[in-house]
């Protein structure tokens, strides 16, 4: 399998990362190297195997732990928004959202 520069553009778009033509070329080369290394996985017979979700699940059952439905938080907007690049009246501001 070999990726093309179209694949790189599709992935960059999917991952929302702008990419320059020079970067595209280098990334294409690197990703193809990585995937030729990854290819060895395909030879492994994994029929009837269940994927491993949590490592400890190999030795014991690991069900999801649940918390009680209780409100434990109070308003901490000021501290939580201290890193906002742009804000006004308690709202995070972004370039206009088109729907």
């Amino acid at each position: 399998m070999s990726l093309t520069s179209d694949d790189i553009h599709r992935l960059a778009k999917l991952a929302r990362i702008n990419i320059t033509p020079v970067e595209t070329e280098r990334t294409l080369r690197e990703l193809n190297n990585i995937f030729s290394m990854v290819e060895t996985l395909q030879a492994v017979d994994t029929a009837h195997l269940v994927p491993l979700c949590h490592p400890i699940a190999i030795i014991q059952e690991m069900p999801l732990r649940l918390r009680d439905d209780a409100v434990t938080e109070t308003n901490a907007r000021e501290a939580n928004m201290v890193n906002a690049p742009q804000q006004e009246n308690g709202l995070f501001l972004v370039p206009k959202v088109l729907e």
């Binding site: 996985l41 492994v44 994927p51 490592p55 190999i58």
Partner: peptide, 15 residues
């Protein structure tokens, strides 16, 4: 082919 297969191989490695 990739993610799921890798997680299955992961089980083999853990085993």
């Amino acid at each position: 082919a990739y993610y799921l297969q890798a997680q299955k191989v992961r089980r083999l490695i853990a085993q």
